[in-house]
């Protein structure tokens, strides 16, 4: 078990220029900044259309100091495979290929290419930053938008369907590494990236990203809301290393303390959940409790 990184031991070198085009309080800016610190300079980034394209800037102008390729919406993982093929031809085994796509670009239109690459075991790291909707185009629902969330295209009753569990889908590909992270726990993200760097094949990261305009909260509360998602047991931080599942960071602590904050606090902090009724929230609370009862049982 390696030593956990803290704010003092985090590398000071920055790979994201200050003054990106991200919104005020954007959770992605935090995850991206810390994520690139972990990936380091010997990295090629692959980015499809998404908020990150806006943050990133468009080729050949980018707000990062790392080489970055802008690819079509459906093809993130496929383009990464192409880059890997050339690196292999050139005898380059040291450069990391890292794809960063949004939840729409991963769970909806990009899933086919991602599944193909994962099944082949192509050696790259895939990051899905999950702000739970198509935020860049004006907040439309995606496969990972949670049930009950109001979006431009689910305007009345909120989304009626459950959030798609993409990390579970990726785990079903028998990957060497799958992680669920949050922008509110950047050091957990950093350590997980470092943990997986030398593992073979495709590595998958799912990062929960609070989004002020899409979720409806004051930009200064982003970290608080990201933490609430974890502390209420609504969104779990974990890693699956070669098939071994374990909770990490604040989620691990919940098991230790056997204490969950009521999920109502998470919902009521965001305007996108305003139509959720008390009965619906109670129902979701029951699901969360059942999930955590299993975690507790495992721990016994």
């Amino acid at each position: 078990m390696q030593v956990k990184t803290n704010i003092l031991s985090l590398p000071t070198e920055e790979f994201v220029h200050p003054g990106t085009r991200a919104c005020t309080g954007c959770g992605l800016a935090i995850a991206y900044r810390v994520g690139l610190k972990a990936l380091g300079k010997d990295t090629i980034l692959v980015v499809p259309p998404s908020c990150l394209t806006v943050l990133q800037g468009l080729f050949p102008v980018a707000s990062t100091k790392l080489p970055c390729l802008n690819v079509t919406f459906a093809s993130t993982a496929a383009a990464a495979t192409g880059i890997l093929a050339t690196l292999k031809t050139q005898g380059n085994e040291h450069t990391t290929v890292a794809a960063w796509a949004g939840d729409g670009g991963t769970s909806d239109i990009g899933l086919q290419a991602l599944s193909g690459a994962a099944e082949r075991g192509d050696n790259f790291i895939y990051f899905c930053y999950d702000n739970e909707g198509y935020m860049n185009t004006g907040v439309q629902r995606s496969g990972t938008t949670p049930i009950g969330a109001i979006t431009a295209n689910t305007p009345f009753k909120g989304k009626l369907q459950q959030k798609k569990d993409v990390p579970a889908i990726m785990a079903a590909h028998s990957l060497s590494y799958v992680a669920a992270c949050s922008a509110a726990y950047p050091l957990d993200l950093y350590d997980k990236i470092k943990n997986c760097m030398n593992l073979p094949g495709t590595k998958y990261f799912h990062i929960h990203i609070p989004c002020p305009p899409g979720w409806g909260y004051d930009p200064r509360y982003g970290i608080k809301i990201g933490r609430l998602a974890v502390e209420t047991g609504y969104y779990d931080l974990y890693e699956i290393v070669k098939g071994e599942f374990r909770l990490t960071a604040a989620s691990e602590k919940i098991v230790e303390k056997r204490k969950l904050i009521p999920v109502r606090e998470y919902f009521r902090a965001q305007s996108r959940f305003k139509i959720l009724t008390d009965a619906q929230i109670a129902d979701i609370q029951n699901q969360i409790d059942a999930k955590w009862a299993k975690y507790y049982k495992k721990d016994e």
Binding site: G104, I109, Y134, N136, T137, G138, Q140, A152, N153, T154, P155, F156
Partner: peptide
């Protein structure tokens, strides 16, 4: 499916 600059049409249909 979302893409700028036609999202208003999709939203109109959603509503």
């Amino acid at each position: 499916y979302p893409i700028t600059p036609q999202n208003e049409l999709t939203e109109y249909m959603a509503q």
